[in-house]
């Protein structure tokens, strides 16, 4: 086989095309993702303040983290609590909103826009406005609650209400999930729906027996994306509570930021970051395993 033929074979070879197309991503992954990942894995076994040279200490960071660090387990617990509440309530709300918007109600485009907006226009200014609205004495929320006769709680200032306050705020960011649900709803084969209508099934029955099972892949997608995002949340507690009160909103993302940038404990922070990564991976796998039995794919 001469060179020209080999070259022509190569050009037509799918494998070669695959690697060529993948080249940019591969370069980025190796250089800017995998490389730094490995370095931070190394750093997790050192004591390092970020400026001098790292000092190898083996498993000590992890030993301290799991046994003597009084912040770690509470932080993990609070992060789970926040993530669980946010994903559960957020998914339910997104589904409910999508179902309501999916009807022939007048002004559905307006509602869809309004619900989607905060998910897009997110960021620090929005968090600042929310923490202002949640102010126990001067905030709009408690003011409105007062008008209805309820004594509003201290929200971000109370150890019991801080996490609910953050979850409440995050509920307004479920627009993205809602749109995905909307798309899923519109894909439900009409024959099934019409058949149920003819059978005289009420809307709740239809919803439970047909819509939800058919939407289960979409639900799974939203749950997983929601979990990944909420387990890594950082900006909200950083801007709004600083981790308080009494570290009830000291989620993992904020915790490792403080360790790295505020306490100059970069080695320990790297260890925390890797633990966070593993937690996310494990939880995702668990959810996927669980979903095998409960998620129905169309056509199966």
């Amino acid at each position: 086989m001469n060179v020209t033929m080999y070259w022509r074979r190569l050009r037509r070879s799918e494998s070669a095309a695959f690697w060529l197309f993948l080249a940019p991503w591969l370069a980025g992954f190796l250089g800017l993702t995998l490389g730094p990942m490995l370095f931070s894995l190394f750093a997790a076994f050192t004591r390092w303040n970020g400026v001098g040279s790292p000092q190898w200490i083996g498993l000590q960071n992890f030993r301290v983290m799991f046994t003597s660090d009084l912040d770690f387990w509470p932080s993990l617990g609070h992060t789970f609590l926040y993530a669980g509440a946010r994903v559960a309530l957020g998914t339910v709300l997104a589904l409910a909103l999508a179902a309501m918007v999916n009807t022939r109600i007048a002004g559905r485009t307006f509602f869809r826009t309004v619900f989607f907006l905060p998910a897009i226009v997110t960021g620090v200014p929005l968090f600042v406005v929310w923490s202002w609205m949640l102010d126990p004495s001067g905030g709009v929320l408690n003011y409105l609650l007062g008008k209805v006769g309820i004594q509003g709680p201290e929200w971000l200032a109370s150890s019991t209400w801080a996490i609910p306050a953050l979850v409440l705020m995050s509920l307004t960011a479920t627009g993205g999930a809602m749109i995905v649900f909307l798309a899923g709803l519109q894909d439900i084969p009409l024959e099934l729906r019409d058949a149920a209508l003819v059978d005289g099934a009420g809307w709740w029955q239809r919803f439970r027996r047909i819509t939800v099972p058919l939407l289960s892949p979409v639900i799974l997608f939203n749950v997983i994306m929601g979990l990944i995002g909420s387990l890594q949340v950082f900006a909200e507690p950083y801007v709004m509570t600083g981790g308080g009160p009494e570290h009830t909103t000291y989620f993992l993302g904020l915790y490792l930021y403080n360790e790295a940038f505020w306490y100059s404990n970069v080695g320990y922070a790297s260890a925390l970051a890797w633990v966070q990564f593993l937690v996310v991976v494990v939880l995702t796998v668990v959810v996927l395993r669980f979903s095998r039995r409960h998620v129905h794919y169309l056509g199966s």
Partner: peptide, 11 residues
């Protein structure tokens, strides 16, 4: 005096 948790932002 309000308790520590009530770090006023605007008020």
């Amino acid at each position: 005096m309000p308790a520590a948790g009530q770090t006023q932002y605007a008020v």
